[in-house]
């Protein structure tokens, strides 16, 4: 997992829960990196799992919720860090459709070793999009959070329905329905 995720996470934890919480979860988790993350680095994604689990325990927030909130936060940070990907006039669903084929493609060009989830989309109607999430990290909640963040960015109200397609959570069907105002 790219270091940027880790740095954003630690920033978020520091700002939202305080330095102490951050320090606590770092020290309580057995991290090979010792919690020293740089945005340009690459680290084992299990460290993220440990941190998130530790945080969930520490703050008594259910894990899925935590991941979702992080996802929303992360999206907002993406729009700041990589502004060229986010053009307002594209529309939420159009944007989401382009995640796999456009954004992720560009990511791979720069970071060939990036471990990104795969999305396959189908657009049953103008305002409905079904994204099939596939990743062995089983972090669909993060994805949902990101999607929510996207909804906020594009200023479009949407409803998200997710259906796990298997027990491990590595395949999840996410349906986004845009509400017309």
């Amino acid at each position: 997992m790219k270091g940027v995720i880790f740095t954003e996470f630690t920033e978020m934890v520091e700002h939202r829960f305080g330095l102490e919480s951050l320090d606590s979860i770092i020290t309580s988790s057995d991290l090979p990196s010792k919690g020293a993350y740089t945005a340009v680095g690459t680290y084992d994604h299990h460290e993220m799992v440990k941190l998130v689990v530790a945080l969930s325990k520490h703050e008594s927030i259910p894990l899925p919720q935590l991941l979702e909130e992080f996802g929303t936060y992360l999206f907002q940070r993406f729009t700041v860090l990589y502004p060229h990907f986010f053009k307002v006039d594209s529309g939420l669903l159009h944007f989401l459709e382009g995640v796999e084929n456009y954004i992720h493609v560009e990511v791979f060009k720069l970071y060939p070793d990036a471990e990104l989830p795969r999305f396959s989309c189908s657009r049953p109607s103008e305002n409905r999009l079904i994204m099939l999430y596939q990743s062995d990290k089983s972090m669909a909640d993060l994805a949902i959070g990101l999607i929510k963040g996207a909804g906020a960015f594009f200023n479009e109200n949407c409803t998200i329905v997710s259906t796990a397609k298997n027990d491990s959570g590595s395949v999840v069907e996410i349906e986004i329905i845009v509400m017309n105002e």
């Binding site: 740095t7 330095l19 951050l22 320090d23 770092i26 020290t27 010792k34 919690g35 020293a36 993350y37 740089t38 945005a39 340009v40 680095g41």
Partner: peptide, 14 residues
Amino acid sequence: QRQLERERLARKEA
């Protein structure tokens, strides 16, 4: 202090 240390390490890595 610990935070600083972590950041220093991070920088070195970067």
